[in-house]
Design a protein around this nucleic acid. Structure first.
Lengths: 195, 195
DNA sequence: CCGACTATAAACCGATCTGTTTCCGACTGC
DNA sequence: GCAGTCGGAAACAGATCGGTTTATAGTCGG
């Protein structure tokens, strides 16, 4: 019975936290609402996590990877590095078109916290770096002239496009793909790799 | 006496609101703190503005332009369109290097609100469009191949670079300038305009 | 059946939230 | 001097905040 509906109290709590913090904001989400959404008591919550901030950081850390997994193409797939890079933006375009898209969860959290030393901010920084590292690796494989710089630029395009979608409350119409392609081309990475 | 220290109650309130909402967040800033910072009573505040949200929207609308004025070079200055575009990113690099930079105030507000219909979100949308329009105008003057698209791309770079600075709590090291230059070059806008 | 453990619901704490109201002193025009 | 108005200080209202505690219901191993 517990297997079908309830994965585990702690798990449910982390999921509910990641969901509500993202959809409604950190400060705007109270602990009571959180526990109610997770079907858990406050006492249990405070046994798992000492403070709301600790829960926030752990929810980002635990549920973050799953929420951004779609950006990274299956490593087993037969794709060129350039296609793997563009896959990130294809996925972003898809997400941004939906009305419940509120930007990158990590950026969103770090921006609201305004405290670089907050545990959740550190988690956000690590994940951003992870995406940049992914870009750099693929850029290097693609033979880009300056993979490190290109990776940072692509991350900027990713976050900028996400911000655009949020303030306009609209999709991106391929703009992020177009911009990423332009930067790839400027770094010598072209669609049909010529022999 | 009132002329030296106190501009006007309403003005002070708007300034304090813009400042605190930006520095500490919207939800995290209480009305009491706001009034205290502005040196005004809550009664007066609620005579000027019906709700906190109304104050927020109006503070963005009124104090927003001044807070972003530095991005736009003096129209009288002898600058090329390309230089005017890059001036935006030079200014951003300067701001991002300071520890009290928390990103674009409009994006920040819209992101925290998560409600595209909120008056403040509409204000944010208008200002973003204003910057894009500025980019587009300069891009057209510079003879870019596709000024409209280039303008959107530059706006994306602006917001993406701001986000990067926020999550890393560090400066940009010229990265936004570099990226903007690359997109300009891709659109056929080069530094020393050759005859 | 029993004691230990667990997790729940709910009350509770002081503080703070948005928003309203009351009171009172300081101006104003007359 | 004196009604009238203004705005500030502060109490107030009801709700919610993060966090703690109590009491109770269920679930184990022994």
């Amino acid at each position: 019975m517990t297997s079908t509906a309830k994965p585990a109290p702690r798990e449910r709590l982390l999921r509910a936290a990641a969901d509500l913090f993202y959809r409604e904001g950190i400060t705007a989400t109270g602990v009571d609402k959180l526990c109610q959404a997770a079907g858990i008591s406050k006492k249990s919550m405070y046994q798992f996590f000492a403070t709301k901030d600790e829960l926030l950081a752990e929810s980002l850390n635990t549920c973050g990877p799953a929420s951004v997994a779609g950006y990274f193409a299956d490593p087993a797939a037969d794709l060129t590095p350039r296609e793997r890079i563009l896959h990130v933006f294809e996925h972003l375009e898809k997400l941004a078109a939906e009305p419940d898209f509120f930007g990158c969860p990590f950026v969103s959290a770090a921006a609201e916290l305004r405290d670089p030393t907050h545990p959740a901010s550190l988690v956000a920084g690590r994940f951003k770096q992870m995406m940049t590292d992914y870009f750099e690796e693929q850029a290097r494989l693609a033979g880009a002239t300056d993979p490190e710089t290109l990776a940072k630029q692509l991350t900027i395009v990713y976050d900028g496009a996400a911000a655009r979608s949020v303030v306009r409350a609209a999709g991106l119409d391929g703009l992020s793909l177009l911009t990423a392609s332009a930067l790839l081309a400027a770094a010598g990475v072209h669609p049909a790799s010529p022999e």
